[in-house]
Amino acid sequence: MTDTERHETVLQWLKSYAAGEYPDATAAEAALYLASLDRPEGDITAYFARLDDICEDLQRAVADTHTPADAPPRVMDLAIALQNVIPGYHGFQGDEENYDDPENANLMCVMDRKRGLPVALALLYLHAAARCGLEMTGIDFPGHFLLRLEANGERVLLDPFHNGIVLGAAELRELLKAFQGLDAELQPEHYREATDRTILLRLQNNIKVRALRSGDLAYATAVLERCLIIAPDEPGLWHQAGTLHARLNNDEKALACFEQFLKLNHDPRHQQRIKTLAAELRDRIAGISPDTSETADDKPDDTVIPFHPAKNTGASGAENTPRGTSSAASPPHDDPSPA
């Protein structure tokens, strides 16, 4: 199979996955397919086998938990089992030294390097937990993806970036303030559950933001197009893709993206502005010179988040905390917004 054929096969799998044709596939498996688009030389089946190894080791660790006869494991026992297997035996940790390295969001690279972003590492925990029958959910916490583990009416929050440590209210408050400022306080929306699609978009957004910061508009556009395979109903993604295509002088693709945005977003605040942009693109495609007699509308476009969001510079020298404790340093932050 040629690289082109392999690329098309991966794209078709992702389209089928987005259409719900692989209901048993985990977000980690989908993330490996996304990662393989940048690593066509890699054997993706080898990474699936490594996921299986993690699951088998976790299954044994759960079976070895010390509980009273016939009693199910406590939530802290399960948390310790996860810590012993994923960051412990397999050595997966957050990459604090090279946090902004794009490889930290490519799951194939993460599995090779044993280092990654919180959301990338979380995929390993979620996959293993799902395959071992544990109740675990991704938490779309601002700036730092977390995990919620539940068992027998108890629940704890884990930090996949810091060896799966358990976080208490004080540590969560510290995380939030490091990202949103000293006046920020914990709110129910900060514990929003993340769907598989949300997780994958958050992962890809980290790659896109880093590409934009380095000035690689073509790669950022390619990442957005991958996001649109997963989430074709997200108008913000179509707007961003249209804007980047326009900046790359891909006028026909830009126009198609803006037209799709108009179909999905009916907010009158944005409709007229995007219709104007679409009309300008049609003229440009047709070779019609713009009419300069009218004053251009220089009002900032707030349809989506800025392409180059301010880089958070929270403390990046956090020390590793012993597993099973609830002490968390203020880590660097990932870029959570998918659109």
Rank of each mutant, 00 (worst) to 15 (best):
D101N: 15
D43V: 12
D64V: 10
P23E: 00
A61N: 06
M76S: 07
M76P: 00
A105F: 13
Y17L: 06
A69Q: 04
T65F: 03
V85T: 09
Y89R: 11
M108E: 05
M76R: 11
A19N: 09
D101H: 13
I44T: 13
G88D: 08
D57A: 09
A61Q: 01
A25C: 09
A63R: 13
L78E: 02
Y33G: 13
A49E: 15
Y99H: 13
V85P: 03
I86T: 03
D53I: 03
P40D: 15
Q59T: 08
K114T: 10
R60M: 05
A19W: 05
E29I: 03
M108Q: 12
E21T: 05
M76Y: 12
E56I: 11
A35P: 03
L82N: 00
D112G: 08
Y33C: 05
D95N: 15
E41G: 15
R115I: 12
E97A: 15
H90S: 04
E103Q: 13
V119F: 00
D24T: 06
D57N: 10
I54S: 01
R50C: 11
L58K: 06
V62H: 02
P23Y: 01
P68M: 03
A105S: 15
E97Q: 10
S36H: 11
D77F: 01
H66D: 12
Y17W: 15
R60G: 03
G116A: 07
D43R: 12
M111T: 05
A46D: 12
L58T: 12
A63H: 07
A69T: 06
L58R: 04
T26R: 01
Y22F: 15
Q59Y: 09
D101F: 09
E96D: 11
L51D: 00
M76F: 13
H66A: 14
P40T: 15
A30K: 04
Y89W: 12
F48E: 06
A30F: 07
P72N: 07
A46H: 07
D53P: 00
P73L: 00
R113C: 10
L117N: 08
Y33L: 04
H66R: 13
A30W: 01
R113S: 12
V119L: 01
L34S: 02
A105N: 14
D70P: 00
A46P: 02
V110T: 02
D77E: 12
V85H: 04
D100G: 07
M76L: 11
N98L: 13
T26E: 10
D38Q: 07
E96S: 14
E103V: 04
L34H: 01
R60W: 04
Q59V: 06
P72R: 05
P118W: 01
A81S: 11
D77A: 10
D70H: 09
A18V: 06
H90E: 02
P102Q: 10
T65Q: 08
P68T: 00
L107P: 09
E29N: 06
G91F: 06
R115A: 14
G88W: 01
I86F: 08
A71E: 14
Y89F: 15
A105H: 08
D57K: 04
D100S: 14
C55A: 14
T45S: 13
A25M: 06
D95F: 04
E103R: 11
